[in-house]
Design a protein around this nucleic acid. Structure first.
Length: 414
RNA sequence: GUGGCCAUGGUGAAGCGGUUAACACUUACGACUGUGACUCGUACAUACGAGGGUUCGAUCCCCUCUGGCCACCCCA
């Protein structure tokens, strides 16, 4: 057996790469339109960065990171998400000194040691965006509108926006206590996982899919009722901005996020089309993260979306490019003539192909058809001596005679 | 990490203990010695995920490993 790729690490083959370009280009277009600039950061960081930002007790840090010791004895980790590294760079290069309001986006591979499934891989790709330095809910709304706009841009209406507020370090503990109190008397009605969650991550119980848990928590207190004045005003502000732009959204007070650094606004773009991997993109506000990482006390908000999941939603649409012209040739001399002509046309931006191996004309025409060439052109002895050739429109088979020079051909295949 | 299902060529797949591993698609070439799509012909798995075992004999049975899918966990 020959060597294969690592489990959960996938190749993106030529037939799929067009779809990826489509997604990436749309993201860049939309994000840059919104004033975001790309930042490129390493895919490996000191382990400490992730344990400090994502949270020591989260599953990601506890059991999913690719962590190892390098030859210098340092503990390093393949990034499991993008925000931590971006904020590290933001602080390290003191970008806030120039302008505390930074709008950054990034894309690239992330790594999590999980059991692979559809839409979930050990190496996966995210495109994410972050705004720093803005407290106003306007930033939240811009990020959300941008995300919704992205999905419109690539022609998907499926993932729907859900938002919630997790409160801040002032009000979240109050809510947490209220929830624990509510759950305490109902522990025996909960599933095994939820009884465990009661001590590890009680908010997650609200997200449980087990019917009897859903039933038992039906009357559970809502985070939204426990928001402090500031958080409440903020959330109302976000909703107001979304409504003012007609952005469709749903409030889901049971939505929980897996990273510790989130405060106030959290959100997901969810779909029912990917099985249990329903979140295509997700994010939230992280007002404490930057200072927690040793930076100034400024807020941030951002999201990441999973490219594999977006690609799955796009399905098998074709995004490859078809040649404008295929040049078929009949002999050795004609081939070198055709090669020169192809070169001229290529340098003027036409997508042109010709046969490599001197196959039969029939084979060459079949190839032209298979590649989806819009036009074809046969060059034989007659054409070279007369300096003219018939350009054939593959779609309907009609031919028109043109001089064998790049300009005339370009005009004919326009 | 847990549970269930699955694993035949480039692809979709039939076969399910016994001499040539069906069929279709794809691909290549040809049917016109200068023209594609339709049609027709020809070719294309020393091989049934890998490694062991049972058997006179295994693609078909058993074990292990690897990989995939689904659910859980968790998450993008």
């Amino acid at each position: 057996m020959s060597v294969t790729a690592i489990k959960g690490f996938n190749d993106i083959l030529p037939r799929e790469s067009g779809r990826w370009h489509h997604i990436e280009q749309a993201a860049r277009r939309v994000f840059e339109l919104n004033g975001f600039s790309e930042i490129r950061v390493p895919i490996m960081e000191k382990t400490e960065l992730f344990s400090r930002s994502i949270g020591d007790a989260t599953d990601i840090v506890e059991k999913e990171m690719y962590t190892f010791t390098d030859k210098g004895g340092n503990s390093v980790t393949l990034r499991p998400e993008g925000t931590a590294g971006v904020m590290r760079a933001f602080i390290e290069h003191k970008l806030h000194a120039q302008d505390p309001v930074a709008r950054l986006y990034y894309l690239g591979p992330m790594f999590r040691y999980e059991r692979p499934q559809k839409g979930r891989y050990r190496q996966f790709h995210q495109i994410g965006a972050e705004i720093t330095g803005v407290h106003d809910p306007l930033a939240d709304a811009q990020v959300l509108n941008m995300l919704v706009g992205f999905f419109r841009e690539i022609g998907l209406d499926e993932p729907h926006l859900q938002i919630n507020s997790l409160g801040c370090p002032d009000c979240r503990p109050v809510y947490r206590a209220a929830l624990l109190e509510f759950l305490e008397g109902r522990l025996d009605q909960l599933c095994e996982d939820c009884r465990r969650r009661y001590s590890t991550n009680p908010l997650r119980i609200l997200d449980c899919k087990v019917p009897r848990c859903i039933e038992a928590t039906a009357g559970a207190p809502s985070v939204l009722d426990y928001l402090c004045a500031g958080c409440n005003e903020h959330f109302t502000g976000v909703r107001g901005y979304l409504e003012s732009t007609g952005t469709p959204y749903a409030v889901n007070p049971r939505m929980v996020r897996g990273l510790d650094y989130y405060t106030r606004t959290t959100f997901e773009m969810v779909t029912g089309l990917l099985g249990s991997q329903s979140a295509v993109a997700a994010g939230g506000r992280y007002d404490g993260l930057i200072s927690q990482l040793g930076g100034p006390s400024i807020p941030g908000i951002g999201f990441a979306m999973g490219l594999e999941r977006v690609a799955l939603l796009l399905g098998d649409q074709e995004f490859s490019h078809r040649p404008d012209l295929f040049i078929a040739t009949l002999g050795g001399g004609e081939r070198s003539f055709a090669f020169r002509l192809m070169h001229d046309l290529l340098s003027q931006g036409a997508r042109v192909e010709m046969d490599y191996d001197g196959k039969s004309l029939k084979s060459q025409m079949r190839r032209a058809d298979k590649l989806g060439a819009r036009f074809s052109l046969v060059i034989g002895e007659n054409e070279v001596t007369s300096g003219k050739a018939a350009v054939k429109r593959m779609e309907d088979g009609t031919q028109s005679e043109v001089p064998l020079v790049a300009d005339a051909i370009l005009k004919a295949i326009r």
